[in-house]
Design a protein around this nucleic acid. Structure first.
Lengths: 234, 234
DNA sequence: TATGATAAGATGGTATACCATAAGATTGTC
DNA sequence: GACAATCTTATGGTATACCATCTTATCATA
């Protein structure tokens, strides 16, 4: 143990690690991942007893997990009709993209001003991962890699709370994002946009980073709106 | 029933209202209100059996409500130590104010551009309510009236999703807000700031509304930071 | 008087039972 | 064949039981 300064001894290092995962914690993770991984369709009913069978836990655990997901906006519950995977309507989706624009661009700006060199390198690596994910053609892989990129960006910007908000909002439009994320022409554009953002961050240009991020979100918002417009109603 | 246009008959008005409040719904509302109304202190343990007695419901209901509040960020649960009212640290509080600044100012701008005359009148009335609440000297009343004002503003701006985000973040710093909201000098300043914001909205000046809102949030953020700095740690 | 051991109480985690209500299936009648 | 009535099944809501673990209280010993 390193020598400590005079005064109150710092015993934080001594604290016993009591982290233990409950069944509920594990189940919440699995359900959230299953929803985000397109294992359930928006609108699909989440019948408690069916989930008990699939997950191998009691209804108590399932109900508590559903309450959590409900508060996160991933599940909606109609009284006496039961829970179902949430379906964001077009107006909500548009607002979510707008909020993302506000928060992501501000994070990009702050990232340019204060990110460590290590974080900037991590961002570059994350863009390479996104590129590789596009090659696989899998929306899942692209969304996962994109999420990793933004997590690095927000944390490097010193904005974990904003990241929580964006991640939560993105979860609500995950299915829509999944439908718009992978097309051949989108691959090239997306990577170019992200490299432009990264270049701005690397040269510590807050203004340009802000611009690049705002432009990127505006682009994906438009793609999503077009996609929604082409879907049958309901 | 009013006559309808040719085509698919609009039967929305005919739909049977099946809203029925569950015990869980009622309990969630009561618990949330109790936390926001300073009936529980940040860090205070929420013992399940104690809550059962106070609320008159079973542990099933209490546990599901705690899961919901946990996901909302109002409650934090340490494994095998149980739930407690959440305590936002200073860094989180600062980020919450920054996010509010981004979302509220954008909503103010949009409100100036598109709010109905009726909504603008409602905003004026809401400011009068805030003024009256300050006279009572009650932080609860001031926070309640302020929440009403912002709900009107966000809805008039057409941004219910952003309002959800702001309301949720505000809930997490409710106690801090309660500590900073009411002082004699704050009363005059706060009302002046809100009237300035309202005047900008009334004259449909998006830019000025944006500025007034951003300034207001910056002001309350600074007051909160000062207050936090004056508290003992822990 | 202080410390260690033991017992009792408190608490969160998880499972299951019971109930009311809604939905679906089946049967009977016109 | 269509519709109404009846029966059965499915489902969410709520309560309670049981268990393991942790905390607190009590007792014994040095």
């Amino acid at each position: 143990m390193v020598a400590m300064a005079q005064g109150t001894p710092d015993t934080a290092e001594m604290r016993v690690d009591r982290s233990v995962t409950t069944l509920r914690g594990l189940t919440l993770e699995k359900m959230r991942d299953a929803i985000l991984d397109f294992r359930f369709r928006p609108g699909e009913r989440l019948v408690e007893r069916t989930l008990c069978e699939r997950l191998g836990v009691s209804r108590s655990v399932v109900r508590e997990v559903l309450r959590h997901l409900e508060a996160e906006g991933l599940v909606e519950t109609i009284p006496h009709q039961g829970p179902a995977v949430a379906r964001p309507d077009p107006a909500q989706a548009a607002q979510i993209y707008e909020i993302r624009g506000l928060l992501e661009s501000e994070a990009a700006r702050a990232c340019a001003l204060q990110a460590s060199d290590a974080a900037i390198d991590e961002l570059a690596a994350a863009i390479d991962q996104i590129d590789a994910a596009f090659q696989t053609g899998s929306p899942r892989a692209v969304l996962k890699a994109t999420t990793d990129f933004y997590e690095i960006l927000f944390r490097a910007a010193g904005k974990p709370v904003a990241w929580e908000v964006v991640r939560s909002l993105n979860a609500r439009i995950n299915h829509l994002r999944g439908m718009t994320v992978v097309t051949p022409e989108r691959h090239a554009h997306a990577i170019a946009e992200m490299r432009a953002l990264h270049a701005a961050i690397r040269r510590r240009d807050g203004e340009a980073a802000w611009r690049a991020s705002a432009d990127h979100v505006a682009m994906v918002a438009r793609l999503a709106a077009e996609r929604l417009a082409s879907l049958p109603p309901g």
